[in-house]
Design a protein around this nucleic acid. Structure first.
Lengths: 206, 206
DNA sequence: ATGATCTTGAACATTCTTGTTCGATTTAGG
DNA sequence: CCTAAATCGAACAAGAATGTTCAAGATCAT
């Protein structure tokens, strides 16, 4: 009896590429230092196959990031920003939260193997969108005007990232993240004399 | 003339240990993944000497963290928390900012080589202090009461860490960090109908 | 069925980091 | 002056990760 040392399959090339991209996204989102071996194993694919589709680690990460950026931008672009600025902000936070949960620490992985310039451009577009919304709310008298808008955007991203970290650490249920972020931002944005809307669901947070 | 391939010195053991601890602190604060080689070079010391004083990487990191925690706790313990809660918070933020700038990403390095239990205990004490201050301010009517205190503390730490990252990235001057954090927290904490104090210096931030 | 395509594990070279060993050298202290 | 402590660079072994090569097996289209 001859033992079969290898059991290769033919499968579909495009299908495998998808598997690898999916697995790489999920794996790198949790651990930006994950090895190629881990990613290949998660994709249910040999390491050689992976290298057959992606020249090296940098190329793979770049492909993952490109796909994630496309998806993120589409998600955020679809958010309805009309109507009451506070409600619009909550919708935008909800969408941002989903994207952050999905892609987590992928930014860190990107920073380690990609030129910094590419990343900066990726951040500018959604950032400008948030800025416009905040400016609109400020002009409409719904948001306070005594803090610089750019700092507010930075704060929002920071708080979002912190919430995601809490979720990964098991400190915060994933479905409470958006509520916590929204409450914080609305608390920060609502000017003196106005009521901060919808804080009730935050009572139980950590 | 005989070339001297090695030029060892006797020096003082305690002195070298100090150099190594200082260099390790500074190096790991910027790059938590810094190699032993980098640390030894930064300390102006051979790698062998370093291993002579610290059994392995874990022991070195533990020593660095222990020293940093002692220093941090002392700095934060000395902050005067009496008087107006808002002013006290600004003082506390200032002290926290200095500590964060000094020790930066050292937490990350610690998380990679130390048992998680040690870190948790280290965070609890200063955290409880901030919580007490916020509760006091809330009871005194100076801080808003519609956001959970524990979430506010998390937000404050998060914003502080974000500001430090901005400084390391060269986006924010180090001396504007505390002002930015204070403005954000006071904006978040000041209840409707009260004026947020001291926001003028924030106009130029990022 | 036959050839092109895709996959496989095993094995290998390379590089990096950790940690150790060694002989040689300097210096503080008695 | 002499010894013990402390240092040095160089060299080595071990381990992990990256990337390549190879021969063998599976599958699809024609």
């Amino acid at each position: 009896m001859t033992t079969s040392p290898a059991r290769p399959q033919r499968a579909d090339a495009r299908r495998n590429v998808e598997s690898i991209l999916d697995a790489a996204t999920a794996t790198l989102a949790r651990d930006p230092d994950a090895s190629i071996n881990e990613i290949a194993k998660a994709a249910g694919v040999g390491r050689v196959t992976l290298y057959g589709h992606f020249e090296n680690r940098g190329v793979l990460v770049a492909a993952v990031v490109a796909r994630a950026m496309q998806d993120s931008e589409a998600s955020l672009r679809d958010v309805d920003l009309s109507g009451d600025p506070a409600a619009a902000l909550v919708r935008l936070i909800e969408a941002t939260w989903q994207v952050t949960l999905r892609y987590g620490a992928l930014v860190v992985a990107a920073e380690k193997s990609l030129p910094a310039a590419d990343l900066a451009a990726a951040h500018d577009q959604p950032r400008a969108r948030v800025e416009r919304l905040l400016e609109h709310g400020r002009d409409a008298g719904r948001f306070r005007s005594d803090l610089p808008v750019s700092w507010l955007v930075t704060t929002m991203h920071t708080v979002t990232h912190a919430a995601a970290t809490s979720v990964y650490a098991g400190e915060l249920p994933a479905d409470q993240g958006a509520g916590a972020i929204a409450a914080t931002m609305l608390g920060l944005l609502t000017p003196p004399g106005q009521v901060v809307p919808g804080l009730d669901e935050l009572r139980t947070v950590r």
